[in-house]
């Protein structure tokens, strides 16, 4: 008999209203409905969430760790993007 693993799903949970969904782990499940059920049992046994997203892991496109310099380093020399770059007179510096 042909052996086939259930696909992998990434699980994201909103811990309470007002917060973002946050990645918390993954589960194997044959389809989306079961992925939600499994995620519920595995990741929310103690009021950890009010909403769950499951996404097929193979549908996630991730950045290449080798591309870290091109992608993220340029931000380092653009310190004028941060409010602390601007020195204002003391009286108004809380602006």
């Amino acid at each position: 008999m042909q052996k086939k693993e259930w696909p992998l799903w990434e699980v994201f949970i909103r811990s309470r209203n007002g917060l973002d969904h946050k990645h918390c782990g993954s589960v194997h499940a044959p389809d989306a409905t079961m992925a939600l059920q499994v995620a519920r049992d595995v990741y929310t046994r103690r009021l950890e969430g009010v909403s769950i997203w499951v996404v097929k892991a193979s549908d996630i496109v991730a950045s290449d760790p080798d591309a870290k310099p091109e992608l993220f380093d340029p931000a380092e020399d653009k310190i004028y993007r941060h409010p602390t770059f601007y020195q204002l007179p003391d009286e108004v510096n809380h602006m």
């Binding site: 990434e10 892991a57 193979s58 290449d64 080798d66």
Partner: peptide, 8 residues
């Protein structure tokens, strides 16, 4: 958690 790297 991502088990498969897309860059491979």
């Amino acid at each position: 958690m991502y088990t498969q790297s897309l860059s491979i």
